[in-house]
Design a protein around this nucleic acid. Structure first.
Length: 968
DNA sequence: ACTCTGCTAAGAGGA
C-alpha cells in the first residue's frame, strides 16, 4: 500500500475513529484535519514507493524485515528508556555486504537535522545493542516528511553518546540535590527550584511557563532578587501581593513535602536493581511465569510450579491477608527471563533475555493465584511472546514515574496565581477571605414561594429548603452538613432546581464513591426518569458504579467514536446540563477546558485538599461547598505537612474566615416560612463577611441518646432529631415464649451492654480491670518474613487488641441471639476500629468467609465516613498496661501512650465513629488509658454513670475460648 | 507511632 489515496482511505477507515476524541480536544474538524495531513500522506506515499520498490535506485538501504513498530527499549545498564518509531533489518546499498538493525525516526517538522534529532538516534543505537545480545546497531536514519521526504543517515558515535550521558548525569545530580530524603521538620528548609533560570528575554517572553517560573524563582531563589537580569520575573509577578506570595510559597512547600512522602513509599522504581525473588517479596513483581494463552493483547500467565508461590510469600500469620485485587489494574512491564536464573545472577537486567519488552496492566488474578491475566498495550501486541513454550517471563509493577495527582495540585496552585479575572476572584476569596460584595450571583430565580411549592423540594425540611434556595442566589456558599442531615438529598434537590432553571452544573467530590452516591439518588428522581433532565458521569470506566453505566461518558460517546461523528460528540459535550466527575478528573477531560458551568457543587468538601478543590472552581461561575469540618480531613501522609496545615480543606479555610461559633449560633431551624425571603437577604441569615453558610443540623440518623453524646462532644447542642421516630428509635426485641431472652444474661455484663432501653443506647465497656485486655503490638518483623527477609507491612499496621476482638465476637453473637427475631441482621451491625490491624484481626476471628457471607462490615473509622448502621461497636484498642506479670499492679503507662497515638487524639475521628450509629453504640476501651486523650475525655465525661459497664474477672474468663458459632 | 484516595503515559515540534 504505497498509493496516497489508499493511505488516505486506510486512514479514514481505521485510524480516524481512534482520534475523534483528540480532534474534539484540539477543536479541529475532520475536514480541516485531513487537509492538514494531506502533504504528509503524499510524502509517506513517496517514501514508501522509494523504499519498498526492489528496483528503485534512489534509496540508501533495502528493508529486509520490520522488527518492530513503536518498540520500547529499556536499559538498566544506561538507565534509559526509549520508544522508537520503527525498527528494521536492512542491507545497506553503499556497502552491499553490510546488514544491520537500524531505528527509523519520523519527523514532521522542517528538515533541521538538529542536534537533538541526531542525538535521539545515537541513543537508540546504544539502547538496541544493550537490550539484546543478538542485536547490534551501528546506524540510524532520520526521515523528514515535510514537503519532500528526506532520509538521512545518522551513524552511531561514542563521543556523542559519552557527552550525552555526562550531561544526563549532571542533570540528575542537579535535580537530586533538592530531593534530600532526611527528615525535614520545617517546610522553610525545603529547597525547591526549577531548572537554572534562563536569562534570555526573547526566549522567556515567549514562554508560556514564564509566570510559573518567575514565581518559583521569586519565592524560592531569593538570591536572584534585585538582580537586573531578572526584571522579567518581577514584571510577570507584579499582579500578586505579599499575601499571595506567602500563600503560594507555603502551599507549594507543603505539597512538595507530601509529594516526597508519597514517592518515598514507592518501591516500584527499585525493580531494576532487584532479583525477581526480592521483587516478589517486596510486592513489586512476579516472576518465573509461562504464557499459557495469548489472544491479541490479552495474555494469561501461569506461575511455574517450581517457583515459591505468592500465597506463601504474601501471608501474615499463615493466613492470607494481602488482597490481590489491589494489584488488579496495576501497570506492569513484562520481561523475558533466562531459564533457571536464580543461581546465576543477582541484577535484574543480567538474567533477562529481553528486558521490558512490553507494557500493560494486570486484569485479574485467579482464585488460587496461579493464573494472571494481563492486557498489553496496543503497541506491544507483536513483540514475539511465545505461549506454550519453555520461555519464562516476569512482570514488574510500575508506578507512575510522575505523580500525576501532585502535578494536578501544583498546577492548580500555579493557575490560581496567574493574571486573569477568574484567578483574581478566587485569590480574593481563598487567600484573603474577601468575598464578593453581597455575594449574590446573576442567576434568575423565580419567587421563593414558587420554588417552595416545587415538587423536588417537597421532601426537604426547612433547613434544607433554605439551603437550596439560598445557594441558588449566592456566588459562593457553604452547606455545613452534620452527620445524617440529608446532605445528599439536599444536593439532589439543588441539582434538579438548577437544571429546571436552565443552569449548567458541575457535580463533584474527591472520591468516585461520593460522586456516584449523588448520581444514584439523582437517577431515581422523576425529572431524570422522565428524561426531563440529563447528566453525564466523566471518569475511568472501571471506577464508575456499574449502575450508572448508561450515564457514563464512555457509554454515551461510544457510538460517535465508532462512526467518527465528531459534531454529535461536540454538541453532546457542549450542551449536557449536568456533568459529574471527581475533582481530579476535572484536570484530565477536555470537556472542562472548553466549558464554564453556572454552578459547581463540591460534596465532601472538607475532605479535599485545598489545591485539589480548585480544579472544579476554575470552571464554574458560582460554587457551593458541602461538608463538615468536624469530620475527617483530607488524607495527608507527611506529618510535617499535616502539622503545617496541608490537611486544611478549602471548606475549613472559608469557614475559619468567619466565626464558626457564630454559624452554630445562627442555625435556628424554626424560621417561619413567610419570613423566608427576609431571612435570606437580611440580618437573620448567617452572613459573615458576606459568606453564606447554610447549616443542616436536623438529622435523621441517630436516636436522642446517641445524638446527645455527639452534641456534647462535637456539635455544641445544635443537632436535632428530625422527628419522634428518629428520636426514640431503639432495637426491636420480640419476646419468645420463654420470656425475655436477655434474662439468661442476668448476671453478665452482656445484659446491660445489649439492652434495648433508649437510655442504654450508648454503652462504654470498660476493660480497666482486665489484665488480658491490653493492646497487642504485632511485631512486624516476625509476622512478615520471607526466607529471613522482612517484607513490607505498611498495608496492615501493627496495633491490635485480641481481648477486645473476642469481646466483639461475643457481643455480636449475643446481639443476634436477642434481636434477630426483631429483624436485626448481621449487615445492620458495624464494627469499627481506628486501627487497620485490628480490623484485619477481627475479620480473621470472625472468619473471612463468614464476614463475606453475612455482609458483616468490619472497617476502619476512615472507611466508615459517610455510612451508618443500626448498631455500631467501636474497638478503641489502645490500653496501656504492663502485661508481663499478672500479679503486678496494673498501671497505666499513659505518659508514653498519650504522646503516641495521633489517631486517637483526633476529635474528628472519634466524632465520625460515634455518629455512625442509629440505635445502639457500644464502645470498648480502657477508660483510664483513654481519658488521657482529650476527645475521649470529653466522651467519658459526657456519658451517664449508668452507661458504663465495668468488666470484672468472672465476666471474661471464658471469653478467650469464644469462637463464632451459631451466630445466626 | 500508622489513618489512605486520587491519576493512562509519553511523545508530538518550535526557538
Amino acid at each position: 500500500m504505497t498509493d496516497a489515496h489508499q493511505i488516505e482511505e486506510y486512514f479514514r477507515k481505521i485510524l480516524l475513529p481512534t482520534i475523534i476524541f483528540n480532534l474534539y480536544e484540539i477543536g479541529t474538524s475532520i475536514n480541516d484535519f485531513i487537509t492538514a495531513i494531506q502533504p504528509y500522506i503524499k510524502s509517506v506515499s513517496k517514501w514508501l514507493t522509494q523504499y519498498l520498490d526492489k528496483n528503485s535506485k534512489s534509496k540508501l538501504f533495502n528493508i529486509d524485515k520490520i522488527e518492530g513498530i513503536e518498540p520500547s527499549v529499556w536499559s538498566n545498564l544506561y538507565g534509559l528508556i526509549g520508544k522508537m518509531d520503527i525498527l528494521v533489518s536492512i542491507s545497506q546499498l553503499v556497502n552491499k555486504y553490510t546488514r544491520g538493525i537500524v531505528p527509523l525516526e519520523l519527523k514532521t517538522g522542517r528538515h533541521s537535522c538538529s542536534n537533538s534529532h541526531m542525538a535521539q538516534l545515537i541513543l537508540y543505537t546504544y539502547l538496541i545493542s544493550a537490550s539484546n545480545k543478538n542485536m547490534k546497531s551501528n546506524n540510524g536514519y532520520l526521515i523528514y516528511l515535510k514537503d519532500e521526504p528526506k532520509t538521512i543517515l545518522v551513524p552511531s558515535n561514542e563521543h556523542v553518546f559519552r557527552d550525552l550521558m555526562i550531561s544526563r548525569n549532571e542533570f540528575i545530580q542537579y535535580v537530586h540535590q533538592f530531593e534530600d530524603v532526611k527528615e525535614i521538620s520545617n517546610p522553610d528548609e525545603l529547597l525547591i527550584k526549577g531548572p537554572l533560570p534562563i536569562v534570555n528575554e526573547r526566549i522567556c517572553n515567549n514562554c508560556e511557563r514564564l509566570p510559573d517560573c518567575s514565581l518559583i524563582l521569586k519565592c524560592f531563589d531569593s538570591k536572584y532578587m534585585g538582580d537586573q537580569k531578572f526584571n522579567l520575573a518581577d514584571e510577570s509577578t507584579a499582579h500578586l501581593d505579599e499575601s499571595d506570595m506567602q500563600f503560594f510559597k507555603k502551599t507549594i512547600s507543603l505539597l512538595e513535602l507530601e509529594k516526597r512522602h508519597q514517592s518515598n513509599n514507592d518501591m516500584s522504581e527499585h525493580f531494576w536493581n532487584f532479583s525477581s525473588e526480592k521483587c516478589e517479596s517486596s510486592l513489586i513483581g512476579l516472576s518465573k511465569m509461562q504464557i499459557i494463552r495469548m489472544d491479541s493483547g490479552f495474555v494469561t500467565f501461569k506461575r511455574s510450579s517450581k517457583a515459591p508461590m505468592p500465597s506463601k510469600l504474601f501471608t501474615l500469620n499463615k493466613k492470607q491477608i494481602v488482597n490481590y485485587s489491589q494489584f488488579e489494574g496495576r501497570r506492569v512491564v513484562l520481561s523475558e527471563e533466562i531459564a533457571d536464573s536464580t543461581k546465576m545472577f543477582n541484577v535484574y537486567g543480567m538474567y533477562c533475555k529481553r528486558l521490558c519488552i512490553a507494557e500493560g496492566y494486570v486484569k485479574k488474578f485467579s482464585e488460587d493465584l496461579q493464573f494472571i491475566d494481563v492486557f498489553l498495550n496496543d503497541d506491544d501486541n507483536n513483540v514475539g511472546l511465545e505461549s506454550g513454550s519453555n520461555k519464562i517471563y516476569r512482570l514488574d509493577f510500575l508506578n507512575n514515574q510522575t505523580n500525576k495527582v501532585m502535578a494536578i495540585n501544583f498546577s492548580n496552585i500555579l493557575r490560581l496565581m496567574i493574571l486573569d479575572d477568574k484567578s483574581r476572584e478566587l485569590r480574593d476569596i481563598i487567600i484573603r477571605g474577601r468575598f464578593p460584595s453581597h455575594n449574590t450571583n446573576t442567576c434568575i430565580v423565580p419567587s421563593i414561594s414558587n420554588l417552595f411549592n416545587s415538587s423536588f423540594l417537597s421532601n426537604l425540611n426547612g433547613q434544607q429548603k433554605r439551603a437550596v434556595i439560598g445557594v441558588l442566589r449566592t456566588k459562593c456558599s457553604l452547606i455545613y452538613g452534620s452527620p445524617g442531615s440529608g446532605k445528599t438529598q439536599t444536593i439532589v434537590a439543588l441539582v434538579q432546581a438548577l437544571a429546571k432553571l436552565g443552569y449548567s452544573t458541575l457535580v463533584t467530590s474527591f472520591t468516585h464513591v461520593a460522586v456516584d452516591n449523588i448520581l444514584l439518588k439523582l437517577m431515581q428522581t422523576d425529572s431524570v426518569q422522565s428524561k426531563e433532565i440529563d447528566f453525564v458521569r466523566i471518569g475511568q470506566k472501571s471506577r464508575i458504579n456499574p449502575d450508572l453505566k448508561e450515564y457514563s461518558d464512555y457509554h454515551r460517546i461510544e457510538k460517535w467514536l465508532e462512526n467518527g461523528d465528531l459534531s454529535s460528540l461536540e454538541s453532546f459535550y457542549n450542551n449536557i446540563p449536568i456533568v459529574a466527575s471527581t475533582c481530579l478528573g476535572v484536570a484530565s477531560h477536555p470537556l472542562f477546558f472548553k466549558r464554564t458551568f453556572d454552578f459547581c457543587i463540591l460534596d465532601e468538601a472538607s475532605q479535599v485538599f485545598l489545591a485539589t478543590s480548585l480544579g472544579p472552581l476554575f470552571v464554574a461561575k458560582n460554587f457551593v461547598l458541602v461538608g463538615d469540618q468536624k469530620q475527617l480531613p483530607p488524607v495527608c501522609g507527611n506529618r510535617v505537612a499535616r502539622q503545617h496545615g496541608l490537611d486544611e480543606s478549602l471548606f475549613y479555610r472559608l469557614l475559619t474566615f468567619c466565626d464558626s461559633n457564630n454559624v452554630l449560633a445562627n442555625s435556628d431551624p424554626d424560621v417561619a416560612f413567610e419570613r423566608f425571603e427576609d431571612y435570606l437577604i437580611n440580618k437573620n441569615s448567617v452572613t459573615i463577611d458576606s459568606v453564606r453558610i447554610f447549616p443542616l443540623f436536623i438529622q435523621y440518623r441517630m436516636n436522642r441518646v446517641i445524638m446527645e453524646l455527639s452534641n456534647n462532644i462535637t456539635y455544641a447542642g445544635k443537632l436535632r432529631c428530625a422527628n419522634k421516630n428518629v428520636e426514640l428509635a431503639t432495637l426491636r426485641c420480640f419476646l419468645s415464649e420463654k420470656g425475655d431472652p436477655t434474662g439468661s444474661f442476668e448476671k453478665s455484663y452482656l445484659r446491660k451492654a445489649i439492652s434495648s432501653n433508649l437510655d442504654d443506647s450508648v454503652i462504654f465497656i470498660d476493660t480497666d480491670r482486665v489484665v488480658n485486655a491490653c493492646e497487642n503490638v504485632s511485631d512486624s518483623q516476625t509476622d512478615l518474613q520471607v526466607d529471613g527477609e522482612i517484607v513490607s507491612n505498611k498495608n496492615c499496621g501493627y496495633v491490635y487488641n485480641d481481648f477486645e476482638a473476642h469481646l466483639i465476637v461475643q457481643l455480636t453473637q449475643t446481639l443476634m441471639a436477642v434481636y434477630q427475631k426483631g429483624g436485626l441482621t448481621l449487615s445492620d451491625i458495624g464494627v469499627i476500629s481506628p486501627f487497620k490491624r485490628q480490623v484485619i484481626h477481627l475479620r480473621e476471628l470472625f472468619g473471612e468467609e463468614f464476614v463475606k457471607q453475612y455482609k458483616l462490615e468490619i472497617n476502619t473509622v476512615d472507611q466508615y465516613q459517610g455510612r451508618d448502621k443500626e448498631v455500631i461497636i467501636y474497638s478503641c484498642v489502645k490500653s496501656y498496661f504492663k502485661n508481663d506479670d499478672d500479679n503486678s499492679p496494673k498501671l497505666p503507662n499513659s505518659a508514653i501512650g498519650v504522646v503516641f497515638s495521633e489517631l486517637l487524639k483526633d476529635e474528628r475521628r472519634l466524632n465520625v465513629a460515634v455518629t455512625r450509629a442509629k440505635k445502639k453504640l457500644i464502645i470498648i476501651g480502657n477508660r483510664s488509658s483513654l481519658k488521657h486523650y482529650s476527645p475521649f475525655q470529653k466522651l467519658l465525661t459526657s456519658m451517664q454513670p449508668h452507661q458504663f459497664v465495668k468488666l470484672c474477672e468472672h465476666n471474661y474468663d471464658d471469653l478467650l475460648d469464644t469462637l463464632p458459632k451459631n451466630l445466626n
